[in-house]
Write a protein that binds this DNA or RNA. Sequence first.
DNA 1: CATGAATGAGGCTTCATTCAT
DNA 2: AATGAATGAAGCCTCATTCAT
Lengths: 193, 193, 193, 193
Amino acid sequence: MIDAAVTAFSRSDYHTVRVEQIAAAAGTSKPTMYQYLGSKEGIFNACVRRESERLMIALRTAVHDPRAARGEDPLRRGIRAFFGFVVDNRESWTVLYRRAAASGGPFATEVTRARERVLAEVTDLITTCGGLPSGAREREAALLARIAVGTADAFADWLLDHPEESPEVMADHVTALTWAHLDAHSAPAGAGA
Amino acid sequence: MIDAAVTAFSRSDYHTVRVEQIAAAAGTSKPTMYQYLGSKEGIFNACVRRESERLMIALRTAVHDPRAARGEDPLRRGIRAFFGFVVDNRESWTVLYRRAAASGGPFATEVTRARERVLAEVTDLITTCGGLPSGAREREAALLARIAVGTADAFADWLLDHPEESPEVMADHVTALTWAHLDAHSAPAGAGA
Amino acid sequence: MIDAAVTAFSRSDYHTVRVEQIAAAAGTSKPTMYQYLGSKEGIFNACVRRESERLMIALRTAVHDPRAARGEDPLRRGIRAFFGFVVDNRESWTVLYRRAAASGGPFATEVTRARERVLAEVTDLITTCGGLPSGAREREAALLARIAVGTADAFADWLLDHPEESPEVMADHVTALTWAHLDAHSAPAGAGA
Amino acid sequence: MIDAAVTAFSRSDYHTVRVEQIAAAAGTSKPTMYQYLGSKEGIFNACVRRESERLMIALRTAVHDPRAARGEDPLRRGIRAFFGFVVDNRESWTVLYRRAAASGGPFATEVTRARERVLAEVTDLITTCGGLPSGAREREAALLARIAVGTADAFADWLLDHPEESPEVMADHVTALTWAHLDAHSAPAGAGA
DNA sequence: CATGAATGAGGCTTCATTCAT
DNA sequence: AATGAATGAAGCCTCATTCAT
């Protein structure tokens, strides 16, 4: 039922999606949805909450995965998981990130917070993984998280037009990019790397 | 009059913005707006068109600026201009990029095209400036453009929460980042850069 | 529900009738009407279709009525039924004939066609009933139909101002008039008949 | 200027005609029209008044025409003139009769009255011309007038589809019809003439 | 409990109508 | 005197939301 809602909200604007549309896609009727989710905003929030949770789990699982190779960088595993999630769950990602970015003002309680939660999680990932060079504080981690998120978003778009690209390779790019920024930050003079 | 519309559309969702609201902010009345722009979609399209144009001009001007230092990289000047535009014209940028990204389906003729135009312009900038290392084709330029745009977007957000940061320095970061990606792309090994 | 619409449309111009007005008269609300009829034009078309059907049925029933006196002219029975319908259902008639005549251009799909359908039905009645004198072709039947319709319309108006008149007697007048025209047409000399 | 209005009002419904449309057709601008006619209703009333006057004059002129043949029936001359007017001035007639018939309630002061004025004039024509047989009172004249008007209207429509018909011959039909009715009225039994 | 049917509230759009030029 | 530009008022339509079944 929420699945249908996620799909719908990922395809169109919040205001463009009609509750009846979601109900039909979910194989039920409007009143039933209202019984369970309370309101349209409730439906949307439920979507955000659930997909948000899924992303968090994917991230944490990847980072703390005991089966992971010892030698691999936890940060790298995290980035890979994050990036993979965005690519594999484009609908979820759209609802989580794009719709949240689109809503101006305190539209839905959960909506704007969702973006922050995503950002916070990625920031946390970067921070706790200790990938930051000496002198880098959490502030830098936050900026880095935003850039990583923006990059992943851009890349997901890119894959739409170029399906032949390998997500794996691209994940490497993003990781490299992140590291590159860490270095660049240490010496923000300008050119080179 | 379009100014008011841009401000409004940057603050809220397309559907949330009320035409009367724009009219009031523009110091005029609804019918007057309809006389000039035809419809709500017309108003929005006008915004997109104008801001789009402003961005293009900013970009081209910066690249071909004869007053620029001889030795400076045209690509760098372009990136700087682009980035500066996003930071200095957050409202324009929101309308141009975020709103366009948020609209699902072929919402407005101009809207989805705006995003592509922005992307195309940046791609063009990267391509024609010859900043790409040997072996890089236009496909890489397109990907790079998306990443640059995503990064700039993420960064503009960052500035909102941290106004003490200097846009200048941050512009350098982004430029560095772009270069970093160029390098990373050549050798996507992973670490260092 | 359509009853209320017919009454409303018979009382005022199409544009003067307010949908809310109809809804109120029907004991329901605007959205309900739109759910069933789709649009204001849909409401009007529904009226035209239904009343049109009623007229057709009244006509055909009268002509083929097996209980009718053997010796009576089918044409006469038809004219009587037609005339009776116009007099007894002034609202229906107004919607079917006057509103259709008033609409300039191809206003509503059903509207202009309604008038033609009425005319066609009456023409058909006259033609098939074989009431035409020798030498009369279908062209004369069509003209005759128009005149009969116009006469009935004029007469219905007359009854409004003179309620004391007996419709029965007047129906005879119209029938006589129709016959008279048939004769007049054969010898359009001018006087007497 | 009124010419343009008459043409416009004959082509479309009162509400469908836009004042700007009339102004454009008249080669002037809206404010100018308002200066002269005061309001949209004023414009319409002016049309009705003028065309009404034209019809009256045509009728009276024909009836009292001293140049007319001595032996010809004045009533016949009147009917002929009336009928000719309807055919030759379809626009005027539409505004005068059809639009008036369409307006329900006390729409425009002049409008509903126009129809009555037309009817009254024709009634007067019939009455004063003394064509009525003994025993006929003005009531019969009024009914007769309505029927004549309705017939003329129907006939004008007919001519649209059959331009090859001669108005002259048809005028004879109508006159014959009128006489026929006079006779029928004397013996409203039914058939024959 | 789950649904078909109903509605209250509100948005976009359009005209008839009037000032400043 | 004639007009381009501006607006107040009002209508159609839609959608989130709720009763009776």
